[in-house]
């Protein structure tokens, strides 16, 4: 099936290109709103520069941010999707092509020798999270995750007796620790439960939910809203230089947990939320869902 392989490869290059020059519409709208409600002049200047940058990047096809991120894929692979065995090598090829054509900054470095592979591939890179689901389609979420905002991610293995209070406090602590570092306004993903690794994965996954889409569980939606208000009341503002908006949204995902554990993973996502989502049907036709 040479056509199917070819269309997946070129589809993924397209996804990476879309993400390099755009942010999803809900993120752009949230940044615009943050600008409108802001009266701190430094914060306004920051938000104005961010909004102008989104526009310039889209028009000139210059990458949104010079840190073009670690290529990360969350894939829901239909059990009846006709291609599985060569998926990783196809994605690697697409990443190499995208890196040279767009161009992207090579960000895959050997942690022992600090040698840069030069093409954004390497051991376990691109990072691929694969889940098997029913059906014959393949859904791909691509995330170009910047180093600055990944560095402020946190894992808290709380004592279960602390419960909800402990979770909320952990989120506030993580924001104070992050300060200006993750290029705010950020999206905050909170993963609760599962295991240490699962909580962090859920935290990253949580950030993919649209900003204008509240948690389907009304109780969790309320916690998300409360945390968002409290985080913004810290006054850290855009770029940590003061102002009304530090976070654009707080998103919670959860899993059942061990009775003795309360893992809380926190993922911080910079305003330059370079993410694309697409569905490939079994013939390889791609429907791009995000952006626009």
């Amino acid at each position: 099936m040479p056509d199917l392989k070819e269309s997946i490869k070129s589809g993924i290059v397209t996804m990476m290109r879309e993400a390099a020059f755009n942010v999803p519409r809900d993120v752009k709208e949230a940044l615009q709103r943050a600008y409108e409600i802001e009266d701190n002049p430094v914060a306004r200047a920051n938000l104005e520069a961010i909004l102008r940058n989104i526009e310039v990047s889209g028009k000139t096809k210059l990458p949104m941010c010079q840190d073009t991120g670690t290529p990360t894929f969350f894939i829901e692979l239909g059990e009846d999707f006709p291609l599985k065995s060569e998926l990783r090598s196809l994605i690697e090829e697409a990443v190499r092509t995208a890196t040279s054509e767009i161009p992207l900054r090579p960000n895959a470095v050997d942690p022992w020798t600090y040698k840069n592979s030069g093409d954004n591939t390497g051991r376990y890179v691109p990072i691929i999270h694969l889940e098997l689901v029913p059906g014959s389609e393949m859904k791909v979420i691509y995330l170009a995750k910047g180093g600055g905002s990944e560095n402020t991610s946190k894992l808290y293995m709380l004592s279960p007796v602390l419960g909800l209070k402990g979770i909320k406090r952990a989120v506030i602590d993580a924001m104070i620790d992050a300060g200006p570092k993750p290029c705010p306004p950020i999206v905050v993903g909170v993963g609760v439960g599962g295991s240490a690794d699962m909580a962090l994965k859920l935290a990253k996954k949580a950030t993919f939910r649209r900003l204008d889409e509240p948690n389907p569980d009304p109780k969790l939606a309320e916690i998300e809203q409360e945390l968002l208000e409290k985080i913004n009341s810290l006054g850290l503002g855009p770029m940590g230089l003061g102002g009304k908006t530090y976070a654009l949204g707080v998103k919670i995902e959860w899993a059942h947990k061990h009775p003795a554990s309360l893992p809380v993973g926190i993922n911080t996502q910079c305003w330059a939320f370079r993410r694309s989502e697409a569905v490939f049907d079994s013939n390889g036709n791609m429907r791009l869902l995000v952006p626009p």
């Binding site: 520069a49 961010i50 940058n53 310039v56 990047s57 990458p63 941010c65 010079q66 290029c183 305003w271």
Partner: peptide, 28 residues
Amino acid sequence: AYPGGTSAVATSAVKRVVDVHWLDLGTP
């Protein structure tokens, strides 16, 4: 403080690369 992540705006302010030194350190 240059607004973090606003690389496209920064790039459009570049007139030219005048020179580069110490390329052995890698381009970044």
